[in-house]
Each structure stands twice: as C-alpha cells, then as structure tokens.
Simulated assay, not measured.
Amino acid sequence: MQAANADQAEIDKFEADAHQWWNPDGPYAPLHAINPLRCRYVLEQTGGLAGKTVLDVGCGGGLLTEAMAAEQARVTGIDLATDSLAVARAHAADGQLTIDYQAISAEALAETSAGQWDVVTCMEMLEHVPDPASVVDACARLVRPGGSVFFSTINRTTRAWLLAVVAAERLLRVLPRGTHDASAFIRPAELSRWCRAAGLRVADLTGLHYNPITGAHTLGADTRVNYLCHAIKGHPE
C-alpha cells in the first residue's frame, strides 16, 4: 500500500486549531479574508458553478467548500485532518448545506474515482505536502476531460518570505508562527511544469495581494508572493 503523501507534523498543526476554523478573528483569519476572492476567481474562470460537481482537495474546516456549495455546486471535500473534517461536517449541517466530506488523500481518491468532477480546487495545500507534484497529478486524474483545476500557493521568492513568514508570522502575528516553511514555497514555473506533466494546460496565473496598511486583499498581475492558478485538463486541438 502506497504511503500517504502527507506530513503528519503539518496535519497536527492544523488539527491543534481545528475548533477555530470558523472564527474569523482566530488563527485562520487570513483564510477568511481571502475566501471571497478565491471563490470569485473560481466563479469567473469557470463561468459559474451551479449544477457542477466540485472537489475541494485539502478542504480543512470547509471555508471554500461551503462557499462553492452556496453557489449551487455539488461539492465533495477531502482532507486527512479528521478533526478539521468533523468541524466542517458540523458547520455544513448547521447551515443546511449538503457536502460530502471524506477523510482520504487526493492520490487515493484518484485510484477509484478518476474523471468524476467538473472542477477540482486545491488551495493553500501544495506547500504543506512532501510531494506537491503528486497532488497536482492526482487532481488532474480526478477532473473530467476539459474540466478545470485550481491551485493557490506561495511563490519561492525573498519578497514572499519577508511577507508570508517574517511579517505575517513574526511581526504582525496574523498567522501562527511556523505556519509556513519558505523552502516549500513553489515557483509558478515549477507548478506550470507539474501541470503540463499531468496533462493540464495552464490557462491563467493571477497574484493575490495583501495591503498591510488597509488590510485589503486584491487580485492582480503580480505573482511574486501568493498566486492562483487555473488549469484545464487536456490541450486544445
């Protein structure tokens, strides 16, 4: 049996604060702040999610998962952090949202359910696993031909280290210290290469920006820190 592509220490970090997933002022406050932008990006790039099957890989407590379900998508969320999944299930039930949450890795699910989803999202996860290229490949197998895969991660630049680690974790303390390992950040060229190898065509790369003075998050062309990637399965004729 293939070992799960997971770092238990990383899972434990998220499990320690699982009860705080839906606290907008807690350790996941930055995810609450960017969640509307992430969802809007997926909606704009796909032309809407109503009636589509969507898989959220590394769903955590369900922030993006619920936002996409609210757009009338049929959503499945997967994660290996069982406490986070318990929080996600309870919150969805409170909101009367029908979401299928499963404790399984993307690679394992791809073995049994390839090509089952119109859209696959994998946000803020790649930098937390030992083999991110394996997750990219699994996402490509899970989406149907012509379907969309979305990733978001952090660029491996000095600017990203200064903002995501030094500023966010050590100075401003908007993230728990140790949330990120800068050596695991991923350059857009690397992600694009993994996408091509998995049969995905990168359709868009967009930066996600944070203004520490105003506290505003915006989307734009600069991908030097956080960025989003939209890829499509299969190549144009």
Rank of each mutant, 00 (worst) to 15 (best):
V129Y: 00
T76P: 07
L171S: 02
C195Q: 05
A90G: 14
H180D: 12
Q102G: 06
A110W: 10
L200W: 01
V136E: 11
T121G: 07
D118Y: 00
G77T: 03
S192T: 13
G61H: 08
N155P: 08
T157I: 03
F185E: 01
I186T: 05
Q116V: 07
R201H: 11
A198F: 12
V75C: 02
D56Q: 08
E66A: 08
S84C: 15
P145F: 06
T98R: 11
L126M: 03
F150G: 00
D118M: 07
E124M: 03
A67G: 13
R196I: 05
P132T: 08
S113K: 08
A90E: 05
A198S: 13
G147V: 10
R187K: 12
T158M: 14
G146I: 11
T82V: 13
V202C: 09
C59D: 12
S152A: 00
L200V: 04
V75T: 02
V202S: 09
A92R: 00
A69K: 09
V135E: 03
I99C: 06
E71D: 15
I78L: 06
V149D: 08
A160E: 02
A86S: 12
G62E: 07
C59W: 11
L64D: 15
A81H: 10
S134A: 13
R201S: 15
F151N: 03
R187M: 09
G199W: 15
Q102F: 11
T121H: 08
P145T: 11
V129N: 06
V143E: 06
V166H: 02
A70D: 14
E111A: 08
R177H: 04
F151Y: 12
T153W: 00
P188F: 09
C59T: 07
V136C: 10
V87Y: 13
V129Q: 00
G115A: 02
L64Q: 12
L85D: 03
V135N: 11
A67I: 02
V174T: 07
L200T: 01
A167L: 10
Q72N: 14
N155L: 10
Q116E: 07
A138N: 09
Q96T: 12
L109N: 03
T65R: 12
R187N: 05
R170N: 12
P130M: 02
A189Q: 13
L97Q: 15
A73G: 01
T153Q: 08
W117I: 07
Y101W: 15
R173S: 09
R159S: 10
H91C: 11
D94K: 05
T121K: 02
V166A: 10
R173K: 14
T112G: 06
T157W: 05
R89T: 14
R74P: 05
S148L: 05
P176R: 06
